[in-house]
Amino acid sequence: MHIQEEYSERHVLSLMVTNEAGILARIAGLFTARGYNIDSLTVADITPDHAISRITIVTNGPPKVIDQIIAQLDRLVPVHKVTDLTANGPFVERELALVKVSGTGEDRIEALRLADVFRAKVVDTTIESFIFEITGTTDKIDNFVALMRQIGLVEVGRTGVVGLIRGKEPN
């Protein structure tokens, strides 16, 4: 007998939650307990009184499972609202990465040239290295990192995705 894999699709979920101790564990634990996937997760409080946080989760799963994830999140006591940005689009999503690249000579110039194409900024430099700051969709960052790997990638730090619905209305 073999375990069957199911078709899955990527969704960006935006949650408004009470900013309290344990909230992140509650959300993350729900995903592990029920076998859902987390591709990325970001969290920060977003109101002047620090009472509410926005959590953005990139997940993937079959459409039925995505619906379940939303329903399960929605019934957690400190969760105010769950929005499926992917289903309620269009929306904007961005991720920030810091990418450290080392190299000399032609590699260094090529790294700068590619950074220019990707509109990445140099935020630190030594004679033999750069740290680039790049913002964009997950795909764009993946592509940039893949190119840098060929030149001399040292390491990457990524924030995970944040997203908002387009237009004047809130999520």
Partner: peptide
């Protein structure tokens, strides 16, 4: 009363 019980296993 629990929305997450709906369509969980049977549509």
């Amino acid at each position: 009363i629990d929305r997450s019980s709906i369509n969980k296993t049977v549509e």
